[in-house]
């Protein structure tokens, strides 16, 4: 295993991810003879992990089981020990693309922090690129070094313990890209320019406050940087189990069920469980407008002549059904 190369089997010394299911996982350092406790019981490294394939199901002592996953920068990001605030994969992906990183790129980064971004950068620039990362906090710099060694990527990264605002990146005319995640990035712009190749390169700075952004933009302009863009990216994760359940349910909608429970009923049920009401209605409407015979054969209303929406779509009450122009409903038994 290494963070820049897939391996098939789990080996002594690897960092593996124990996946317990539903967003719950943790990293484990595989060691001959060692044990790991989970809520499903004990995992014995020598017998349960070493030599097994990554992605295998491992049965624990209490009969429960977990999956063992190969580490990736993305899994590391959600499992690493926090020493600082970290960047998450949503931002990391945009940073990587906007800095135009690829195998062979030389990147400068400060601060190293917990190494969440560092791992992703190393992954992208390997095998011929290099990361120069600067961290002014001594323990953090040492911890990062140790992690890079454990993850088999130390040959791709140089960690320097100094203040980037005062002493720069320790390299000059070498970098294709510079990334800053420090409290006062505007003080490091000059050093960033010195680190970048003479023929140019790209720079990115990450700041939580708009005032920091303003000062950084001014500093960039002052040092002759062009094409300055400011972006924010937001991730929206859907509660997929809920949506899928709702979706599957809308699939199995039949007229009778519809009579028993108008959409408002389902809506209420789902909104009580934290799903957006609009979304529920939307799914129900969408499903009923698709040509699903199961939705229409029970009452003979087909979507083709459905200029006027049938009861399923509008959720009329059962009392109104006889006045509905489009459907000739069977009488209920």
């Amino acid at each position: 295993m290494s963070f820049v190369e897939y391996g098939d089997t789990i080996k002594d010394g690897d960092t593996a991810i124990v996946f317990l299911g539903h967003e719950s996982m943790f990293p484990v350092k595989v060691q001959q003879g060692s044990v790991t406790q989970t809520k499903y019981g004990v995992i014995r490294h020598s017998t349960d992990l070493i030599g097994k394939k990554y992605g295998s199901k491992v049965t624990c002592s209490k009969g429960g089981w977990v999956f063992i996953l190969h580490p990736t920068p993305e899994l590391w990001t959600v499992n690493l020990p926090h020493r600082t605030q970290i960047l998450y994969s949503t931002d990391i992906s945009v940073i990587t693309m906007m800095l135009e990183l690829k195998p062979g790129s030389i990147v400068c980064e400060s601060g190293t922090g917990s190494g969440s971004l560092s791992h992703a950068l190393i992954r992208t620039v390997a095998p011929t690129g290099h990361l120069y990362t600067v961290e002014f906090h001594q323990q953090r710099a040492e911890k990062a070094k140790e992690e890079f060694r454990e993850h088999g990527v130390e040959h791709l990264v140089t960690v320097t313990n100094q203040d980037v605002c005062k002493n720069g990146f320790g390299v000059s005319d070498i970098a294709d890209a510079v990334f800053l995640d420090i409290p006062s990035p505007w003080e490091a712009i000059g050093h960033a320019k010195a680190a970048l190749k003479a023929e140019g390169g790209r720079i990115c700075s990450f700041s939580p406050c708009i005032e920091q952004v303003q000062r950084t933009c001014l500093a960039m302009e002052e040092y002759g940087f062009t094409e300055i863009n400011t972006l924010e990216i937001l991730l929206r994760v859907y509660n997929i189990a809920m949506l899928a359940e709702m979706f599957a349910f809308a699939l199995s909608f039949s007229c009778d069920q519809q009579l028993l429970h108008p959409p408002s009923f389902h809506q209420e049920r789902y909104t009580n469980r934290g799903v957006d009401a609009e979304e529920v209605l939307c799914v129900i409407r969408k499903r009923s407008s698709l040509e699903d015979p199961r939705l229409y054969n029970t009452h003979g209303c087909s979507p083709k002549n459905n200029n006027e929406k049938c009861r399923i779509c509008t959720g009329m009450s059962p009392e109104n059904k006889r006045t509905h122009p489009q459907c000739s409903l069977r009488d209920e038994p």
């Binding site: 996946f19 708009i210 303003q214 933009c217 990216i233 937001l234 991730l235 929206r236 994760v237 997929i240």
Partner: peptide, 22 residues
């Protein structure tokens, strides 16, 4: 495992002295 359904929103900003806004 670890199935996720996601969407990202992007917002760009104009950053100028006294004229910064999304």
């Amino acid at each position: 495992v670890n199935l996720k359904l996601s969407e990202t929103w992007l917002r760009s900003y104009q950053v100028l002295p006294d004229r910064s806004h999304p």
